[in-house]
Simulated scan of single mutants.
Amino acid sequence: AKYRRITQAGAVAGSLEYPECPSGAAPPLVFRAETPGEGATTGSYPFTTGGGVVADRRGHFWCAAARGTRVARLAYGKRDTLARTAIEFPALTVSAAEREETIRQVETRLAKYSTSTFDRSKVPTTRSGIAALFVDLDGRLWVAHTRAESATSSAFTVFDERGAVLFRVTFPARVNSNLPLLARGDDVIVAATDADDVVSLRKYRIR
């Protein structure tokens, strides 16, 4: 994948290939299904996504490989590693029941296509410990921990620009890691999803 840098005026200011952070983690596996002349679909294998890339508000960026355990701060263009998070985020075990149910859902969805490259043996038994990355208005890195499907709270570890831990916080909500997080000082705004998948904004103050 390639990211384009856009200035505030809307002009393109160079591009960045999706960085492969120095974590030793393989990129996510992709499958494709097709019915010739009727339609096709592609998707990532279950439990192979995670990590992310986010600008650090100081001219560089933080990134973590899809199944990586550590976040690195890299320089644009040079790929120099400026910092790494002080702690690791180990992979989480996927239960046999959850893995089998997830595979069943994928195979059911792909059954309408005549051909498919999906191979159930490639579905891993672990998932990334890193759900998403965010940088707040103070330049701090927020790493969203992957949570269990049944969890009703969401944990984040927050780092400074050198990768040192500032604090860890747990919100009493299912924070949607696919939507932005906004923070400055002790105030944090997150997008939370309830049991009916209704999204709402919640504001917290860190104590």
Score class of each variant (00 low, 15 high):
184 R>I: 06
75 A>K: 12
13 A>W: 07
117 T>F: 07
175 V>P: 01
71 V>P: 00
140 R>D: 11
154 S>H: 06
124 P>N: 04
110 L>V: 05
171 F>I: 01
119 D>V: 08
168 R>G: 12
136 D>K: 10
173 A>H: 08
162 R>I: 00
71 V>F: 07
79 R>N: 13
15 S>N: 14
145 H>T: 09
60 H>M: 11
79 R>F: 11
43 G>L: 07
63 C>E: 02
192 A>P: 01
178 N>Q: 15
50 G>S: 08
57 R>K: 15
163 G>Q: 07
10 G>A: 05
114 S>W: 09
92 L>G: 02
50 G>T: 05
68 G>L: 03
113 Y>V: 09
96 A>P: 02
95 S>M: 06
81 T>Q: 13
98 E>T: 12
132 A>S: 15
20 E>D: 13
43 G>E: 01
64 A>P: 00
74 L>E: 01
126 T>E: 13
64 A>W: 02
96 A>R: 14
205 R>A: 09
136 D>I: 10
30 V>L: 11
106 V>D: 01
140 R>T: 03
204 Y>N: 02
200 S>H: 13
166 L>W: 04
87 I>M: 06
21 C>T: 12
126 T>C: 04
37 G>K: 09
155 A>C: 08
28 P>N: 09
76 Y>W: 11
154 S>A: 08
185 G>Y: 07
29 L>H: 06
136 D>G: 04
56 D>V: 07
15 S>M: 07
32 R>G: 09
131 A>F: 06
18 Y>H: 13
64 A>F: 00
191 A>S: 13
205 R>M: 03
199 V>F: 07
96 A>V: 11
174 R>C: 08
123 V>W: 03
204 Y>C: 05
84 R>E: 12
138 D>C: 08
154 S>C: 05
58 R>C: 08
11 A>Q: 15
94 V>T: 07
165 V>Q: 12
5 R>N: 06
168 R>L: 00
48 T>M: 10
206 I>R: 12
198 V>P: 01
33 A>V: 08
152 T>K: 14
190 V>A: 06
191 A>W: 15
109 R>N: 15
189 I>R: 14
61 F>E: 00
115 T>F: 13
8 Q>W: 10
165 V>Y: 02
115 T>C: 04
176 N>E: 10
1 A>H: 14
69 T>P: 00
145 H>Y: 13
45 Y>N: 03
61 F>N: 03
25 A>I: 06
192 A>Q: 09
71 V>S: 05
101 E>Q: 15
150 S>Q: 12
54 V>E: 11
47 F>A: 05
15 S>L: 02
206 I>M: 04
119 D>F: 09
